[in-house]
Design a protein around this nucleic acid. Structure first.
Lengths: 341, 341
DNA sequence: TTGAAAGCGCTAACAA
DNA sequence: TTGTTAGCGCTTTCAA
């Protein structure tokens, strides 16, 4: 067989091997322009035989079209963002576009760095989590001249387009349910993440709605690191010791909620009679728990799909082919842990 | 302020704005070569003021250096691959290298497609899950002339480098523990995924070791789709109905194992007295369960870190600066569900 | 320390 | 239907 080349093959190699001009080879390989069937076959065979892989760097420079989509997310360490990513990947699948992922760890400086790095590839679009960015990041996004989709959140001012849910509203909705069900002594548990604006907004929506009903949070606790399920357990235990008269626990994510639920059930506490519970996210995991935890679906995959859809449409049909703002409805699921008492 | 440009800025713009040649601007922006402090400042200010973002497409074409690393994984829908990805992302963080992710859905044809797409960016390396690839994929990887790191598995022939655990051995180790503990009627539950070679190898290692001890699998079941926790529950229930005398359940992942565990505990079945349990993966989640599920850590994050480390070393110090094969030790954790009876 | 020229591998635009 | 020419925006190389 052919000895493996040290130098990557170029169009010229295929051109020489097939006896067709570089330009025509390029046309065949991109399915662009009219090429006779005979030539087409000749070229395809030569390309395949040689094992030619086109060089997109050169192609993109020449055509100023880049089939990359930047995706900027804060973390990969719970299922939330991988699910969004999965939606993006799925929608982009047969568009010829490819996601490039950057992780910010919830740090604005890192977001700037990641964004700068990405934009230097002149991607066809950027999908970025959240509406809060540093001035520099925002300037870069505005200057880029490409579609920018801010995802997960709609409470604020978007740069270009956005898809997400209203976290304030999500917090409010859950508070309303809890109030309506008659709970009065409400504890809150969440993550210690001042930079997680969505969690913050949910909390705000939640506490404000309670306040309007004359209820103040009875106790609250925040964790960082470790197994969320275990932390939910621990925090629940401490909270019950500190504030034995709580009658409802609202968790900022389902994982700690599940931990709390398992703890209460083990202790033989009547859920939702003595204590009601609710989480947030609508993770699949909940289906397998001994009791359905009340939660609210954050539409993670849909958000990924919708965001990628905007980019895909922009890429294929232009800037005016899609809605610039999509607010999804977080679906409330009362499960069995939040019931009128 | 400056009106936002429709055309992205080029080196020439910075050159003109700073009164310095393009070449020198390029040197400043890359911290390459000797430039006087005065010139440096002038250029940096101009670049910042204009909001210049370099064009890596052009830079890469000119220098034939591409700071991209292709990452090819089968799925994003459980925590396994996001965790690997997280390790990769972390290690690559300050190397100037960036991951580009492709998802194959366990389909060889899609792997080929994704790989072709990636290689056409001439990345500095590829990290790819598994040792089993189609002929075409393998040919592409060999021809690429870049470091190729196959991850997660070491049972087979590597193309270039690999990092992972031996899944056959993992299966064997767990079987040995189960046998030693005195269990005899063993049920297996896993995913319906003929293409998941690692799960297959674990199962093989497991059954062969049992066979040597004269034990045959008493019952087995495979699921696809849905919430793993719920499926673990359901499958466990059906298996107990079908084969009431099983005394051990081996699950191919911790999530279904946790479902099984919750089910058994609810039913008041004595674990591990009447029935022992084990899963696979060592997910953090397990820390919060009512009882510690026996499992084996698959070293997911370490694999990501080590694979990215190889690429980073290759990029910075050349092809001979790292070990070509790293077999990690899956750590066995017997928890409380696999005990001598 | 700085600058000028050449060209990376491809594609847009035009010509044949 | 096919080929030719001229860059895309940068970096390499070499000269000043």
């Amino acid at each position: 067989m052919n000895p493996p080349p040290r130098r990557p093959l170029t169009l010229r190699d295929v051109s020489e091997a097939s006896g067709v001009s570089e330009m025509t080879v390029s046309r065949v390989l991109r399915n662009k322009g009219d090429v006779s069937a005979a030539t087409r076959t000749k070229v395809q065979e030569a390309a395949k035989r040689l094992g030619y892989v086109p060089n997109k760097i050169a192609g993109s420079l020449a055509s100023s079209r880049v089939n990359l989509v930047g995706v900027v997310i804060p973390s990969l360490s719970n299922m939330v963002f991988p699910e969004v990513l999965s939606g993006i990947s799925e929608r982009l699948d047969d568009t010829g576009l490819q996601p490039v992922v950057g992780v910010t760890d919830y740090l604005p400086e890192k977001e700037e760095k990641v964004l700068f790095e990405m934009l230097s590839w002149r991607p066809s679009g950027v999908i970025i989590a959240g509406l809060e960015h540093s001035e520099a990041s925002e300037a870069m996004l505005r200057q880029a001249g490409i579609p920018v989709i801010e995802i997960m959140d709609v409470d604020g001012v978007q740069i270009d387009s956005c898809v997400g849910i209203s976290h304030r509203r999500a917090g409010r909705m859950m508070a309303e349910q809890i109030i309506e069900a008659g709970y009065k002594r409400i504890g809150f548990m969440g993550t210690k993440m001042p930079r997680d604006h969505r969690a913050r907004k949910r909390f705000e929506g939640f506490t404000r709605t309670l306040a309007k009903a004359g209820i103040e949070i009875a106790d609250q606790d925040f964790y960082s690191g470790g197994s969320a399920l275990a932390k939910g357990r621990e925090m629940t235990q401490s909270m019950l010791e500190r504030t034995p008269d709580v009658d409802f626990l609202y968790f900022s994510n389902d994982m700690i909620g599940a931990g709390g639920l398992l703890y209460l059930l083990e202790k033989g506490i009547d859920v939702p009679g003595q204590i009601g519970l609710a989480g947030f996210n609508g993770v699949e995991l909940l289906d397998g728990l001994p009791m359905q935890l009340a939660t609210m679906d954050a539409c993670r995959k849909e958000i990924g799909l919708a965001a990628a859809d905007m980019i895909a449409k922009h890429y294929a049909e232009g800037a005016d082919s899609y809605e610039r703002r999509i607010e999804l409805e977080p679906k409330l699921a009362l499960g069995q842990t939040l019931l009128r008492r």
